[in-house]
Amino acid sequence: MTVSHHAHPLPEGVLPKAELHLHIEGTLEPELAFALAERNGIDLPYATPEELRSAYAFSDLQSFLNLYYQLTDVLRTEQDFTDLAEAYLVRAAAQGVRHAEIFFDPQAHTGRGVDLGTVVLGLSRALETSRERHGLSTGLILSFLRDLPAEDALKTLADAAPYLHLISAVGLDSAEVGHPPAKFAEVYAAAKEAGLRLVAHAGEEGPPAYIAEALDLLGVERIDHGIRCMEDPELVARLVAEQVPLTVCPFSNVRLRCVDRLEDHPLPAMLEAGLLVTVNSDDPSYFGGYVEDNYRGLRQALGLTDDQLRRLARNSFLASFVDDARRAELLAELDANQ
């Protein structure tokens, strides 16, 4: 059997890595948004892709979400979702991504009349051949919108029953403040019962207490973002002791004003503390870069060393939901990449 990475050489100077915090809707580049709008007969309130790109300037999470949900309207058919996923996979492979665990927001689509099956089957069509075509294994994470009622999340999970063989985990995203993890304890218990892995956004804009709540009340295995844990030394000690992975998104944190400048990002302190930190791109078309761009930005702005970047890549494989054989293969590729 040939090992996939021989057929898919890495770009020069790029480490192999996993991406564990990536919203597929957040990879919608302006050019593709315009192409899909035209295909589906939708008028966008922007004259050109350039004008749309200039609208990608946000003061906070909510201002980003408003545009993000407005643009999802161009996604209507299975083919639209396949094209969206394929465009990401091509870019991810060029950024050294060997494994991607991809969030999608079913309620952002079902809420506007797109069937859940259209979303899952469209995305899966691109993902199922990604290993052969791009050397990139994948997982799909169904993410609940936390600013909608918990009953909506339960209904979404029930509606997803026919497609659970295509889904590896559930997550929790969207506006965090005022929507604590506790609200979703019931749906997380049901997802666990269904055999799904569990992650949740916590401690991005919300307080450190949301991180503990996600661990204790939802039973999550991984925290998405988690940067505000640094305000609570006891919580940091716990996360280090339990080696709970944190999927940190530096460019996102700066663009959404969770951190003022990349130079101020707590990531070096998080590494220093012994946290199992990973670096990811979140919504790369909106936040100014894909995952390798984040790695390079950290090297430039914070002086991260080759060893630290290699550690982040290793952490990404350790934190991923791959089986042991795939993890060993990925770690071996990283170790061979000296």
Rank of each mutant, 00 (worst) to 15 (best):
S4V: 14
H6G: 00
H6M: 00
A7W: 01
P11C: 05
A18Q: 12
H21A: 00
H23C: 08
I24C: 14
I24P: 05
E25Q: 06
G26E: 12
F34V: 08
E38S: 12
G41D: 06
I42D: 14
D43N: 09
D43I: 06
D43V: 13
D43Y: 02
A47Q: 11
T48H: 05
E51P: 08
S54I: 04
A57S: 15
L61H: 05
F64M: 08
L71G: 04
T72C: 14
L75I: 05
E78M: 08
F81H: 14
F81Y: 09
D83G: 11
L84M: 03
L84T: 01
E86G: 02
A87R: 13
R91A: 14
A92V: 09
Q95V: 03
V97F: 05
H99A: 10
H99G: 13
A100R: 11
I102Q: 10
P106S: 07
P106A: 12
T110H: 03
D115S: 13
D115W: 00
G117T: 04
V119T: 10
L123W: 05
S124H: 14
A126R: 02
E128T: 12
E128M: 15
E132F: 00
E132M: 06
L136V: 01
G139M: 06
G139E: 11
I141Y: 04
L142N: 03
D147L: 04
P149D: 15
P149C: 15
E151W: 04
D152V: 13
A153P: 10
A160P: 11
Y163Q: 08
S168V: 10
V170F: 09
G171R: 02
P181H: 09
K183I: 07
K183G: 03
Y188A: 13
L196N: 15
L198Y: 07
V199H: 06
E204A: 07
E205S: 07
E205F: 03
G206M: 04
A212F: 00
A214H: 05
A214E: 00
L215P: 07
L218Y: 01
L218P: 02
G219L: 10
G219K: 09
G219A: 11
R222I: 01
H225L: 02
G226L: 00
R228T: 12
L235V: 00
V236E: 00
A237W: 07
V240W: 09
V244R: 01
V244F: 01
P245A: 08
T247D: 00
C249G: 03
P250R: 02
S252Q: 01
N253M: 06
V259L: 01
V259C: 02
L262H: 06
E263S: 15
D264S: 13
H265C: 07
A269V: 14
M270F: 03
A273M: 04
V277N: 12
V279I: 10
N280L: 02
D282G: 03
D283V: 01
F287P: 08
G288Y: 09
Y290D: 06
G297P: 12
T305H: 05
D307T: 09
Q308G: 11
R311E: 14
A313T: 02
L318R: 11
A319D: 08
V322M: 13
D323M: 05
A325C: 12
A325L: 12
R326M: 15
R326A: 11
E329L: 08
E329C: 13
E329N: 12
N337R: 14
